[in-house]
Design a protein around this nucleic acid. Structure first.
Length: 480
RNA sequence: GGCGCGGUACCCAAGUGGCUAAGGGAAGGGUCUGCAAAACCCUCAUUCAUCGGUUCAAAUCCGAUCCGCGCCUCCA
């Protein structure tokens, strides 16, 4: 049982071995906080949250995920809104954290902000200028890509190929078109910090080099982010960090695939953009999380309302099963009866097999389906009481253990189900009291065997979007 | 143009050299039910874009072709 992870740099799955036995340092590029988080963010952070949760089963993990809280887009947005950049970024950090909490994404161990690491950044830029990897030009400082032999290795592209397409502005301060800014001179009205090169602010890529080194060291185990960060962001991080330290920057690179809409990358220019908040207005956070885990993290995942509806139905089934299971387990059980099926003892083992193969949550979820079916099977067709209870207990424990890694099935099923029901009810505008009245009327009709009347009422309810379930303990209802 | 990824049933989606091609949804049949709903059971790809090749053996490896997507500019 050994963990294999796909490394972007090598282009293949590799057995994972931490640099320091028992310990893992992982850095994931966080959001630039100038707007609400979108589903692409949700995907990335749910994916890495799951990775980290799984790694923590075996290692002492230090997980760092930054906030980029100073950048062109933030300044632009703040100006548009007549707001201070730092006020705007702080606000979107809070919104981001609200969304992540809803999605059961645990905070990273360290969540550094760029604005709180300016001295480290300046020191790093200074070092790069001193050793010739970078040069000051105007009030800016640029990284000289030609000085870094491996430039383009992560993104699999040659410097010569890139020059052709690069736009060279007249009077550009860069020596080479692909050189990128480590430090940008402040324009009037922009936030700035004092530096040896004048007032300015960090370029986009340098922050991650500076902050990862500070918290994880000059060489660390895993660096992750979305596929769109491979080039130039991560390429540039490697160039900066390795030119400064002379050491290998990162042992293994992980990149998650995109969220697509109609099979095209989600982007504002295409107008196919959904925020997490939009989606959580229509679907349960557990639905979104489950959906994001149904496809392997490196593949694209296509988002649509139809799919989410389907997934919510599934998630509802899972929680209803859990609810039935819990109710059943109220009964006192036996200690060492046999299991009803022999695979029961190995549910977690199978889960680890799936996760060990580059965190295959899609496979893991597929396997889990059989567990839930088994639970319902036992509940629907009870056999020997002692055997059933022992089996159900074991299955419940396995579901909980697997769920604690996937970030599912942690909340009480009743809470999740009533949250879903509440959202549907609010959206449909159905009056619960009116439904109850009709149900009481139908109950009376049924009691007097007036089934025609009872069915007429059910038809009426169906027209309202209400589905009812009769059971020995009473009638419940829900919105389709 | 350069580089990369992918095409598995009606839909979504695992599987990347060898037991019966996971799982979910939809659909059809059944059990249960006054009838339903829910739940459970059964059925549902001799076949993995196409064409060649390698191999005792390929959805899985190689080549070609067609189609879709992404990166090369800010992006998770």
């Amino acid at each position: 049982m050994s963990l294999k992870i796909f490394d972007t740099l090598q282009g293949q799955k590799l057995p994972f071995e931490p640099l320091n036995p028992g310990k893992v340092g992982i850095y994931v590029c966080g959001p630039t906080v100038y707007d609400m988080a979108h589903i692409g963010h949700a995907r990335a952070y749910v994916a890495f949250d799951t990775v980290v949760r799984y790694l923590r089963r075996r290692y002492d993990v230090t997980y760092v995920r930054n906030y980029t809280d100073v950048d062109d887009k933030i300044i632009k947005r703040a100006n548009e809104r007549g707001e201070e950049p730092n006020v705007l970024s702080q606000r979107f950090i809070r919104e981001f954290e609200t969304d992540m909490t809803a999605l059961a994404v645990k905070p990273a161990d360290i969540q550094p902000k760029v604005t709180e690491h300016i001295p480290e950044i300046i020191a790093l830029v200074d070092k790069l200028v001193a050793n010739g990897a970078a040069y000051a030009s105007g009030g800016d400082v640029y990284y000289a890509v030609q000085k870094f032999a491996n430039y383009g290795r992560l993104g699999r592209r040659a410097l010569e190929d890139m020059e052709a397409g690069a736009r060279v502005e007249p009077g550009d301060l860069k020596r080479h078109p692909m050189d990128f800014a480590l430090w940008k001179a402040a324009k009037p009205g922009e936030p700035f910090w004092e530096s040896p090169w004048g007032n300015g602010r960090p370029g986009w890529h340098i922050e991650c080099s500076a902050m990862s080194a500070k918290y994880l060291g000059e060489t660390f185990d895993v660096h992750g982010g979305g596929k769109d960060l491979i080039f130039p962001h991560h390429e540039n991080e490697i160039a900066q960090s390795e030119a400064a330290s002379g050491k290998t920057f990162v042992k293994l690179w992980m990149h998650n695939g995109f969220v697509t809409i109609d099979n095209e990358k989600m982007s504002k220019s295409l107008g196919n953009f959904f925020t997490v908040r939009d989606v959580l207005g229509k679907f349960d956070p557990q639905t979104l999380r489950y959906f994001l885990l149904t496809t392997h993290y490196r593949s694209p995942i296509n988002f649509s309302d139809t799919t989410l509806k389907e997934v919510e139905g599934r998630v509802k089934y899972l929680y209803e099963t859990l609810l039935r299971l819990e109710d059943k387990l109220q009964d006192e059980g036996s200690a060492n009866a046999p299991y009803r099926m022999d695979w029961v003892a190995n549910v977690v083992g199978r889960f680890e097999e799936a996760m060990d193969d580059d965190f295959n949550t899609a496979k893991a979820l597929g396997d889990l389906s059989e567990v839930f079916t088994a639970v319902n099977d036992i509940l629907a067709k009870p056999g020997d009481v002692a055997t059933d209870l022992r089996t159900l207990r074991a299955l419940k424990q396995a579901i909980q253990e697997v769920g604690s890694v996937l970030g599912l099935f942690v909340e009480p099923p009743r809470d999740v189900l009533s949250r879903m029901q509440g959202r549907r009810q609010a959206a449909s505008g159905v009056d619960a009291a009116a439904v109850e009245t009709l149900l009481a009327e139908r109950q009376a009709a049924r009691k007097s065997k007036d089934f025609a009347r009872a069915d007429a009422i059910r038809k009426e309810l169906t027209a309202m979007g209400v589905t009812i379930k009769d059971s020995p303990t009473g009638t419940t209802w829900e919105l389709a």
